Simulated assay, not measured.
Amino acid sequence: MTDEGNREGAGPLTGGALTRARVLDAAARLIGTVGLVKATTKQIAREAGCSEAALYKHFRDKEEIFVRVLRERAPRLAEAIAELPARAGQGTVREHLEAVVLVAVPFYRQSFPMAGGLLASPELLAAHRRRLDNAGPHHVSSRLADYLRAERRLGRIADVDPDATAMLLIGACFHRAFLEVFYAGEGPADVLRPGALEDFARETVRALLGGIEETAG
């Protein structure tokens, strides 16, 4: 997952930057295999090919590593959502919402192994919550609601509750990601419908915008 030689306009990572990137990559791999609680800093350092002392030059503790993995190694959901309100009135609402789905599902899919360990440890969860201050996961749906509210003011969507609509879309993405992680390709053939993520995005947004109530006449 390291972008050592693939960063646009920049050379390969070296020195401390390379060590930091390798630590994050190693942490992401271990959290996905052994879980957050069992992934110790010693294991992460060994997987990254550095000493534990070198690891602590870049991160205060495992909690900070977890936060940085989410922010730098997972699909950038928060950033994608934060940009939406400024795009109200541009393009189509359908295109914007489908783009959200295409980022949100991979984000939640990648986050589940990390979040599972976090939720299983009340102490770690409390520490994580304090460190986030007010920048918690609720911002995903609230910022999406801000975008929908702006589109409603422009008359581009119906007079529906933006907060409820945002929760419906994000909830659908969350459940889709959960099914993918839970079954890991070993579930019933019809467990994921629509099968392809692009089809899921298109049909979910279509149902959300069009509704399912039969029209009169």
Rank of each mutant, 00 (worst) to 15 (best):
F112P: 15
G116R: 15
T165E: 00
A115C: 13
V103W: 03
L168A: 03
I170A: 01
P137I: 14
L154C: 09
R130M: 11
A104P: 05
R143P: 02
G155H: 07
L169E: 00
F182A: 15
L144N: 00
A104F: 03
P137M: 13
E151Y: 06
A177M: 02
A150P: 05
A135L: 11
P122N: 02
V103Y: 01
A158T: 14
E151P: 07
L118I: 05
H139N: 12
G155N: 07
G116A: 15
M114L: 14
G117K: 00
A164E: 07
D161E: 06
A164V: 05
F174T: 09
A120V: 13
A145R: 01
H139D: 15
D133C: 13
H139T: 14
G116F: 15
G155K: 06
R176Q: 02
Y183S: 10
R176N: 00
D159A: 05
D146I: 05
G171N: 03
A166M: 01
Q110M: 10
L124F: 12
P122Y: 03
A104N: 03
R156L: 09
Q110S: 13
A164L: 07
F107P: 00
P162F: 07
S141Y: 06
G136V: 12
P137W: 15
A172W: 06
L125N: 07
R131L: 13
Q110D: 12
D163I: 08
Y108W: 11
N134M: 15
L119R: 11
R149D: 13
S121T: 09
L132W: 12
L132G: 10
L179M: 14
